[in-house]
Amino acid sequence: MDPKVDRKANSVDVLLDEGVFPRPVGLAAAYRFLDRCYVLVETHPRQRLSVRLKGKEPLAPAALAALAGEFRNELLHQLVRHQVAERTDSLRAAIVGRALLSADPEPAAEAAAPAAASDPLDFQDDPLGIAVPWEEKYGDKRKAKQKSKKRR
């Protein structure tokens, strides 16, 4: 991956192995240099990517070599970004999904009270008779039993 300085063309060529630096990484690094130099990207056989960095102003060979060095640093930076992005892909999707869900009021309300949405009962309804006083429920039966014992 040694850079090739072309003094006449005022450029430096960096050859990348796409097995190490995937193409999106190489392109992202090249994109970061667009404001400083003219960039031309080409593919080569055996999964290699060539990036030509051409100075916008005439540059000394040492400056061109330094440019290639900075490009390599940027490649590493973009590679780390790429790896972190891949690793946290599902987590980011979950966070964004949750944020979007909470931003929409209707699904959020449904998610907060799914049972209430499907249950037609009011809070005052008492289908099991829990709120009925004991006397009302069993009081008459007990009196009836006592009356029947007295008769015997």
Partner: peptide, 16 residues
Amino acid sequence: DRLLDEFSNYALSCLM
């Protein structure tokens, strides 16, 4: 003098 170089730069930016 710089049209071709600027063209390739712009194409790369469009790509990204």
